[in-house]
Amino acid sequence: MTLAVLPGTYDPITLGHVDIAARAATMFDEVVIGIAHNSTKTPLLDAETRTRLARGATSHLESVRVEVIEGLLVHFCEEVGATAIVKGLRGGADYDVERPMALMNRSLTGIETVFLTGDNALSHIASSLVRDVARHGGDIDAYVPAGVGAAVRGALEVR
């Protein structure tokens, strides 16, 4: 059985993320969306909310499950028996950021990273842009799965 981990902060999950998960699910027997903590970021949504939203957004994908990553990604991959890490790329800047991480992960444990090119129709969507649009009162519902926009707006009202 092949299992891939699709790690990310998912703050919030977007249609681009769901597209990559759906395509990864055609390549691997199982895909685990790993909700990660990035020490360089302060998330708008807590891990529990991000996990709930990701589960809702991918509930139609039978071979996809969502879990929280505690600690190093490569240790999580070992724990779940992953054969690969999957990363979505919107463009060259994403590759420039992801390549060193892929090389480090392979150096640490031998796990390979598979890069999937994002869908052109979704390549302009980034969680950071979605949050920024929402912070300024813009409508983000066209860029995120159902229910995610309301969660983002609710989190912004609390702040």
Rank of each mutant, 00 (worst) to 15 (best):
V144R: 08
M101G: 00
L89E: 03
A150I: 00
E48Q: 15
M101I: 00
I33T: 06
L6H: 04
V80T: 01
G34I: 05
M101T: 00
E70S: 14
R90T: 06
M101W: 01
G71N: 13
A151I: 02
E30N: 14
G138H: 11
V130S: 08
A57W: 10
R153I: 00
G34Q: 11
V32C: 06
V74T: 15
I35R: 03
L73T: 12
I140A: 03
E157T: 14
R159V: 08
T113Y: 04
A57L: 12
A24V: 12
G92I: 07
Y10L: 12
N105C: 03
P100H: 01
H60C: 03
H136M: 02
A25K: 04
T49Q: 10
H60I: 01
F28I: 08
A151D: 01
A134W: 07
S59C: 14
L53W: 12
H136D: 00
P7S: 06
N38Q: 05
Y10C: 02
R23C: 01
E30C: 09
T58E: 13
L156H: 04
S128G: 06
R65K: 15
E67Y: 04
M101S: 00
A84C: 03
V74M: 04
F28Q: 08
N38V: 02
H136Y: 11
R52A: 14
G91R: 06
A155E: 14
R153S: 00
R50Q: 12
P43L: 10
R135M: 12
L73D: 11
L15A: 09
L129T: 09
G138L: 10
D29G: 15
T49Y: 02
A4E: 01
